[in-house]
Simulated assay, not measured.
Amino acid sequence: MISLKSYLPVLADYLDLTPDALYERQRVLVRSKVLKAVAGRGPGSGIRAMPAAVTQLLLAALATDSLAETEDRTKTLGRGIAEHDICPLTGAKDFAGAIELILSSAALAKKISTIVVARANLKATIHYTERGRRYPQPSAFGKRPVLRGIHRLTVEARLPGQAVQEICDNLQRIVGDYPTNALFEEFEATLNSRRFLVEDR
């Protein structure tokens, strides 16, 4: 199984960050014990690219652009309680648990249309499709927003459902028996094709 650091170039592309910027967030989360490394050196040590670890990096990217605020805001966002005590999509009680379950299940990931975090109060909403429903359904986490008037600036972080599905697919391949060399070749091909599409606009 590959390390989280090895997966960062792929994950960073989905989050519109550089691998170095994302690695700095990883280091903050390791120091604060949000991420826990396996002791030792070589294969099998360090932090593995598993849904639980990737969830924390997603939370860090959604919560703030400030490295100094990463620890506190990542923890606060992850602990956000489901609005009706339980997420109707995943059955999780908090936001971090819901995201981890989504990244662990291709069936759940396919239902995601977008994940939105309001940075002012870290209110999070997972928008998902449900059979028989015309429009995406919301699953909200965290405190209700304080109404501050329509004249105030609102900053939101959005992660598209397509990104969630691809990250989930990546993790399924990583934890499976997929050959490591073939996996990295596949990741590199995906990144190169995405860069080509951006440059071709």
Rank of each mutant, 00 (worst) to 15 (best):
A109T: 08
A98W: 09
R195V: 02
D169H: 13
T90W: 09
Y7F: 15
L77Q: 10
R27T: 12
P138F: 05
V116G: 01
R148A: 04
R134L: 12
L17M: 15
R194N: 02
H84R: 11
A49Y: 00
P145C: 04
A92F: 06
G91A: 06
R133H: 14
I86D: 03
E186N: 10
R133T: 02
G97P: 06
P136G: 01
A39C: 02
R144L: 13
L57Q: 04
C168S: 15
H84C: 02
L57V: 02
F184M: 12
R201T: 03
A109K: 13
E166S: 08
E83M: 10
T74Q: 08
D13T: 00
Y23N: 14
Q172T: 04
V175I: 12
E71L: 11
E100Q: 15
L147F: 15
A124D: 09
K143C: 04
A163W: 01
A96D: 05
K93E: 14
P145E: 04
R41V: 11
A39D: 12
D177A: 13
S104H: 07
I167A: 13
G80H: 13
V54M: 11
L57E: 09
R144I: 05
D200P: 00
R194A: 12
L103G: 12
E156Q: 10
L108M: 12
P160K: 10
